[in-house]
Computed example of a mutant assay.
Amino acid sequence: MRQASTDPRFTTHPAPKLYGVESYIAVPLHRKDGSFFGVLCALDPLPANLSEDKLEVFRHLGDLVGHQLEQEDELGRRDAQLLGAHEAAQLREQLIGIVSHDLRNPLNAITLTAATLIRRTDLDDRARRGLSRILESADRANRLIRDLLDFTQARMGKPLPVNPQSVDLHALTQQVVDEVGLATPGRRLDVVCEGDARGTWDPDRIAQVLTNLLTNALQYSPAGTPIRVKTEGQGGKVVLSVCNEGPPIPAQVLPGLFEPMTRGSREGGERRSIGLGLYIVDQIVRAHAGSVEVVSTEGVGTTFRVRLPRGTE
C-alpha cells in the first residue's frame, strides 16, 4: 500500500487514520516446513514509492527472518535433547550404583549365611533342600545383576572390562558345566574336548559366556534331551559350541537374536524371551576379538558357536 488516503481500498478504513499510516508493507513469515509464523510489517506516516525492487528486498528479509526462527527452534530442541541425555546419563550412573552396591550387598549376605548353614551336619533333608534353593536363587540373582551392569555399560558405549590370562578352555568348560550340572539335577550335559584349547582370555568372562549359553539351552529344550558342549582347537582359534535339541528359533527372531530384549513367538502361541543373556554373550566375545553365530533347524536343534582367537600367550 503506497498511500492509504488515496487508495480506494483504504480511504474509509479506520486503521490508517487511527495509527497515522500512509504506507504499509506486510510479508508473511513461514518456517521451512511451510507452517505460518506471523507477519513482518513496515509502517510509514508519509506516502512512499514502493517499487518492485524494494518489495523484493522485503520478501528476502522475510525469508531470512523465517530461517532464523527455524534455527532458534532447532537450537532449542537440541538444548532440550542434550539436557535429557545428561539427565539420562546421571540416572544410569545412579542405577549402576544402586544395583552394584545396594542390591549386591544383601545378596552376598544371604549367600554367606545360607552357605554357612548348609555345612551344618545336624540338618534334615528338607532344611538342606531349602537352603540349596536359597543358594541357587541368590546365584541366579547375582548373574542377573552382572548382566544388567554389563548391559548398562555396553549401552553407554563403554567396552566391557576384560582381564586376559592364560586359559585352558577344555578345563574351564568342564568346570562351568559341572557347576551348572549341580544346579540342574536330572539334565544331561555332555562335554567333548578336541585338540589344543589353550589361549589368552578372561576366564571369568568366558565362564560367563558359557553359563549364559547353557542357561539358554536348558531353558529352551525339552527336559529329557541332552545338552552337548564341545571345545575344539582349530589352528589360531578355539571353537566353543553349545547344542540343544529344542524347537528351532523362529526365523523372524534370528536377525536380532543378539540384541537386548529380543522376543519372538512360535506357532501355537509359545513366547520366546531372549532377555540380556545372549546380548552379553555377544559383547564379551567381541571384547575378545571373537565372533558368535547360531544355527537353528527343525529336527536338529540349535547350536551356538563361539570362535575365539588364541591371543598372545
Rank of each mutant, 00 (worst) to 15 (best):
residue 208 Q to L: 14
residue 231 T to C: 04
residue 212 N to I: 09
residue 204 D to N: 13
residue 233 G to P: 03
residue 215 T to K: 11
residue 218 L to S: 03
residue 213 L to N: 01
residue 214 L to C: 03
residue 227 I to K: 04
residue 231 T to I: 03
residue 223 A to V: 15
residue 211 T to G: 10
residue 212 N to F: 06
residue 212 N to K: 02
residue 220 Y to Q: 06
residue 217 A to E: 02
residue 218 L to Q: 01
residue 230 K to M: 12
residue 217 A to C: 04
residue 209 V to S: 00
residue 233 G to D: 02
residue 226 P to S: 11
residue 216 N to H: 11
residue 209 V to T: 03
residue 211 T to D: 14
residue 224 G to V: 15
residue 210 L to N: 00
residue 207 A to F: 07
residue 232 E to A: 13
residue 226 P to K: 09
residue 226 P to L: 11
residue 208 Q to V: 13
residue 223 A to Y: 15
residue 209 V to R: 00
residue 203 P to G: 02
residue 225 T to D: 14
residue 224 G to Y: 14
residue 225 T to K: 13
residue 229 V to Q: 02
residue 220 Y to G: 03
residue 208 Q to H: 13
residue 208 Q to T: 15
residue 210 L to K: 01
residue 210 L to I: 00
residue 226 P to E: 14
residue 206 I to R: 00
residue 230 K to L: 12
residue 233 G to Q: 05
residue 224 G to N: 15
residue 231 T to D: 01
residue 234 Q to I: 11
residue 224 G to I: 15
residue 205 R to N: 09
residue 230 K to Y: 07
residue 223 A to D: 11
residue 209 V to K: 04
residue 218 L to R: 05
residue 209 V to F: 02
residue 216 N to Y: 09
residue 219 Q to I: 14
residue 206 I to G: 05
residue 203 P to D: 03
residue 206 I to P: 09
residue 228 R to W: 07
residue 231 T to Q: 05
residue 215 T to S: 13
residue 215 T to I: 11
residue 224 G to R: 15
residue 220 Y to H: 08
residue 227 I to S: 04
residue 233 G to E: 05
residue 214 L to W: 02
residue 215 T to A: 12
residue 205 R to W: 08
residue 222 P to N: 05
residue 217 A to V: 03
residue 231 T to P: 02
residue 208 Q to Y: 09
residue 209 V to C: 03
residue 212 N to Y: 00
residue 205 R to A: 10
residue 218 L to E: 01
residue 210 L to C: 03
residue 214 L to M: 04
residue 203 P to I: 05
residue 219 Q to P: 00
residue 210 L to W: 05
